[in-house]
């Protein structure tokens, strides 16, 4: 109980004093995860939509694989990306290992199946509703996909936010490919892990509270923005 309280106080102190280290790693956390979410959404949302609209032979197989990949253990992803990016690996020449870019790559791999899968669910329902109408209107496949993406945008936003939630709290993969290097690749989750290891529970907890606060803040912000957009249209 004492430690929780101390952690809360420490969190307050860090925020009130605008602690430079805290700001830096918080911003890096946001930068890495938001970039990863943006890329994973750019791939996953149309992919989920396409899988809902298109019938082809291996569709079920692809969907099952995607759903299975949703549960991909981040450490394994981290390990694979590590091997690919390491000096001896196929992409070693780019020198990406232990950079924020490597962390983004790992998170994109983790988040894309999740976002695609949730998007697929949502769009499938919308497509069942729209199917006859869009077929009757002689729309092209791309028009159908664009229409579903646009009209289903609130559900798709939820998919992206779920991706953000998973990404911002993820530690296994970015620890491996980022290396938790001070001033370079340290983010909130890896810092928590480090401080916990060192026995600095109150600092670790403080970072944890900041992490939770950040996640809530981003969700609130995006929901508020999307709601003003909707209320403006009524």
């Amino acid at each position: 109980m004492n430690e929780l309280l101390a952690g809360l106080l420490e969190a307050g102190r860090l925020i009130v004093t605008v602690d430079a280290d805290l700001i830096e790693i918080s911003l890096r956390s946001l930068q890495v995860t938001l970039t990863a979410v943006a890329i994973a959404s750019a791939i996953g949302l149309p992919l989920g939509c396409w899988l809902a609209v298109r019938r082809f032979r291996f569709r079920r197989f692809v969907i099952a694989t995607m759903n299975a990949l949703m549960g991909l253990p981040p450490v394994v992803v981290g390990l694979i990306v590590y091997l690919l990016l390491s000096r001896a690996g196929p992409f070693g020449v780019f020198g990406l290992l232990f950079t924020p870019t490597a962390m983004i790559i790992a998170q994109v791999i983790i988040l894309t199946p999740l976002i695609a899968s949730i998007a697929h669910q949502a769009i499938r329902e919308l497509w069942a509703q729209y199917h006859d109408l869009l077929i009757s209107m002689n729309t092209t496949r791309w028009q159908r996909i664009a229409t579903l993406l646009w009209d289903g945008r609130r559900a798709l936003l939820t998919a992206s936010l779920a991706g953000f939630g998973r990404g911002i709290g993820e530690v296994g993969a970015i620890m491996i490919v980022g290396g938790n290097i001070d001033n370079a690749t340290r983010v909130l989750t890896t810092a928590i892990s480090l401080e916990t290891g060192k026995g600095n529970f109150s600092l670790a907890l403080a970072l944890g509270f900041v992490l939770i606060g950040l996640a809530v803040l981003v969700n609130l912000l995006i929901h508020t923005l999307s709601r003003t957009e909707v209320s403006g249209r009524w």
Partner: peptide, 18 residues
């Protein structure tokens, strides 16, 4: 010919738009 026909369904399908 498909592009020059229209269909009104028994249960009208409303798109999520104005």
């Amino acid at each position: 010919a498909r592009a020059r026909q229209a269909f009104v369904f028994q249960a009208p399908i409303m798109m999520r738009r104005t």
